[in-house]
Structure formats: C-alpha cells, structure tokens
Write a protein that binds this DNA or RNA. Structure first.
Lengths: 175, 175
DNA sequence: CTTGGACATTTTAAGCTTCAACTAAGGGCA
DNA sequence: TGCCCTTAGTTGAAGCTTAAAATGTCCAAG
C-alpha cells in the first residue's frame, strides 16, 4: 500500500501534464488510494499512540467481537482476507497481550478456537469507541447526504470491480 | 477491518463541530477501504506474476520516471511518504534488479542520487502500460461522467480529511 | 582551525505479510 | 487395519514498514 505521488494536489484540479482527457481510470485509482492511505496512516498511529496496539490486531479483535463463541483460525483467515500463517502470528501477539485465548476444538483436534478474553473485550470496546470517533471527526465536514452519495457510488465501484477482477488475470497470459 | 460494535447509542444528531454521528462515517471508511484493498491486492499480484516486482518498487520507479536527473533519497522518502530507512531497502533491491543507479552527489557527499537506468526505464514503461490497462478494465463499467463525479467527491473528502487530520491527535490527549 | 549542531543516509529491531514446506489429524476405502 | 488424500495450523524465508540509534558530512560561530 503506497500512496503514489498524487497526494499533494487534490483540489478541484490537479496537474495533468498534457493529457487532460485520458487516464481517468488511473486518476480515480490514485485518488482513492491517497484518501485511504492518509487516513489509514493516521489510524495506525493513533492505535499505537493511544492503545499500544496495531491495526491488524485491532481488526482481528473486531472480527472476534461479534462472535462470542470464538472463531477457528481458518475462519479468521477468510474473514480478514489474510493468509493463515499471518493469523498465527497476529494471534500469538494478542495472546501475549492477554486479549485472546487459544483452545483446541473438542470435536476436531486440528482446529484452534480463538476467543476474546474479558480483558480483550473490554479493551476492544475502548478502542472501538475512539475508532468510531476518529471517523466522525475526519468526515465531520461532509454532510450525511454527501456521505450517503459516496457510499452508493463506491458501492457501484465495488460491484464493477468485483465483476472485472477475474478478467485482469487473463490480460497477462497472452503478453 | 469491518463493522464495529455499538458501544455508542449516540443520539440521532449530535453535531458538535460538524460531526454527524450514526456510524455513517465508519461505513464510508469501511467501504473506501474495501474498494482499495481488493484492487490493491490484485495489483500486487499482477506485478509479481507478470513482472516479478512489487508495488513499492513500482511506486519508486514511477516517482523516478518523471525525473530524468534522478532524485535524492530524502526526496524519494517525502514523495512516497515512507521512512528514509524504507527507501534505502527498496532502492537496494532495485539496484539488484538493475533498474536504478545510486551515485553520490558531487556538491554534497551526504546526498545519494538515485536514477532510473535505461533498463529500468524500459521496464517501467512496460509495467506502466499494463498498470494503466488494469484500471481501464477494472473501471470499464463506469462512465467517464461517473468517474469524474467520483474524482470530485473524493477530492472533497481528501480536503475535509486533510483539514481534520491534525485534530485527531489532540483527541487522545484529553482522554 | 575546531567544535557543535543540523542534515542525509544507513543500520537494527520488531512487526506485518505472503508463499512454500512441513506436521498433524480427519476421513474414505480396500 | 493400513493407505492415501484432504484439511488445519505452524514454521521459515523473504520483503515491506517504522522508529530509533548510529555514521558521516556540512556549515557556521568562535
């Protein structure tokens, strides 16, 4: 994740050095990316500074928060869209923090059930409250209407992208 | 990263400094994030599969491509918005690839000038062409008008966020 | 000239991430 | 029962990332 170089000029117009009408798709991508990157950087910093944790750990706890009975590693892996090896290491650290527990499933001894501890749940609630407040602050200058418009348009983008995503792989095959 | 709990019942409207509550902000963030993540994952995969490189290396080459005379490390660091130590390691690998050169500045021996090699420029042009085509494909179902609308709206978001960004840091101090 | 602060970069430690190789357990089937 | 294939997780190597410490250079005030 990298914020390309279109991060500075964001205003109504930006420098296109000679190609005003082309590259619209690329410009949309760079703008989406720069918005997300600048916010995500701030979120990571706040999580470290205010709560001494990281975004991956927060995300994992968020996934567990809605599952009082816990989740197995493979569910976490799929839910967070990261590799299983990744989940292993993040869970390792959450256990060091005392935020989650790891127990072997009774019926299938291959499976590991990860669950939020009482401390983990308490801590997550504290973080989630702040987390939500950050976005209320960041988007505070946008009206509800604007946000809803954007939600819809980005939903359309996501739909369009999901549909086209598989075609990208095929593009390189011939080249 | 996904939906949060509801620790904050928060009244319908509690605009303090222009902050509408109700999780709309959070939903916008999660939607922006999911759009960017799914695309970025695909871009990284394509860069590896088709060109044997990574997004950070591509980004660095993209920055150099518009600067025929090269850039010093600190310029790269600022332009890419990453730490200077990070630039060092990515440049190391680009040199192994033969894509960039590293020379000491004549006037200031502390500075290192990084420049695209002929091979690097050739390779970058190949990649940039594919890179642009991926987005034309991904956003192919959106009209130019839709894309332009989105560019404007996201520009507004970026402006709003940039303005509020510094306030986030202060939020934790009192808590 | 020397000293000290500022600046440019590298190095190191720690964490996230992926992939590939590996261990372990389940389940089918002869 | 014994063999094989699948599934669940872990481990290790490589790369990106940051912050903090270490190097080396510049420059200006004595």
């Amino acid at each position: 994740m990298d914020a390309q170089n279109e991060t500075q000029p964001v205003g109504p117009q930006e420098k296109h050095d000679g190609a005003p009408h082309s590259k619209l798709s690329l410009r949309l991508w760079l703008r989406m990316l720069s918005c997300v990157m600048v916010i995500e950087k701030q979120v990571r910093r706040q999580l470290i500074d205010q709560f001494g944790t990281t975004l991956p750990r927060f995300d994992l706890m968020a996934a567990l928060e809605r599952r009082p009975d816990g989740m197995v590693m493979s569910e976490l892996s799929k839910s967070l869209m990261v590799s299983s090896g990744n989940v292993t290491s993040v869970v390792d650290r959450l256990i060091e923090d005392g935020h989650v527990s790891r127990t072997t499933a009774a019926n299938d001894r291959r499976s590991i059930i990860v669950k939020l501890t009482a401390k983990g749940r308490r801590e997550f609630n504290r973080m989630a409250e702040a987390h939500e407040a950050w976005f209320d602050k960041l988007f505070g200058d946008l009206s509800d209407y604007e946000i809803e418009r954007l939600l819809i348009r980005l939903g359309d983008v996501r739909t369009a992208v999901d549909k086209r995503l598989p075609e990208i792989d095929a593009m390189g095959d011939s080249a």
